[in-house]
């Protein structure tokens, strides 16, 4: 079953007097346990696509389904809840809160009813940052911080994981590790993972690679 389904998404921006077509009837399906990458030059609309899939931006036309629910028809005020419960985000930078230790970074966002299903401790163990459980971001390395951020993406047992250039702030080795971790967790937990990247060194870790050019996905 496809956990993420994007159907004929169109999005354009008004750029001065010109109308710029960023996404042109883009469709994409990602199954559970599958890791896909969207690659393309900057300005190709990768971030826009990710924002639409991540319930941060509404498309002009088209449908977004996550875990079978048609998200694009939900009113905007329910988006925060949908993001919280169905989507795990990994950003370019770790974006951890400076005043919380690693465990609290996770539990702060964890829904009460998901507590039985996923444990923060277990996730941190799997991502090999168990030693950082009481550490604050200021005392962790870049790789450790990004791994805690990856753990945070899984804390609410979401349907999909969206990673926005997850290697951007890391060196080659750590960047690769980070994508490996996303892959391993997605496989293990059966999540659909979408990685937006222009880092070609990690593409061997990806199941399907979709280049995005002129607002269209190629395969």
């Amino acid at each position: 079953m496809s956990l993420l389904e994007i159907e004929k998404i169109t999005k354009s921006y008004q750029d001065g007097t010109e109308k710029q077509q960023v996404l042109d009837e883009v469709s994409l399906k990602v199954d559970g346990g599958e890791v896909v990458a969207i690659v393309g030059p900057s300005g190709s609309g990768k971030s826009t696509l990710l924002s639409i899939a991540g319930m941060l931006l509404s498309p002009d036309r088209g449908i977004v389904r996550i875990g079978g629910t048609e998200e694009s028809s939900l009113p905007k005020k329910e988006w925060a809840k949908e993001r919280r419960e169905r989507i795990g985000f990994v950003f370019q930078s770790h974006h951890l809160l400076p005043y919380l230790n690693s465990e609290e970074q996770l539990t702060l966002f964890q829904e009460k009813r998901k507590q039985k299903k996923v444990s923060a401790l277990e996730l941190l163990k799997e991502l090999d940052v168990e030693s950082c459980i009481r550490k604050y971001p200021a005392n962790m390395s870049g790789g450790e911080k990004q791994r805690v951020a990856i753990a945070r993406a899984f804390i609410n047992d979401p349907d999909i994981i969206l990673a926005d250039e997850p290697t951007a702030s890391l060196d080659a080795k750590r960047g690769r590790q980070a994508v490996e971790m996303i892959r391993n967790e997605a496989k293990k937990r059966g999540k659909a993972a979408v990685v937006v990247t222009h880092d070609e060194r990690i593409l061997d870790l990806i199941d399907k690679i979709y280049p995005l050019e002129n607002g269209k996905l190629m395969l």
Binding site: G54, L56, A80, K81, E82, R83, R84, E85, I87, F89, F91, H95, L97, F109, R152, N156
Partner: peptide
């Protein structure tokens, strides 16, 4: 910035 992240991660207003 922090508030933007928290909102993106689904923290309610």
């Amino acid at each position: 910035k922090q508030f933007g992240i928290m909102k993106a991660l689904g923290m309610s207003m």
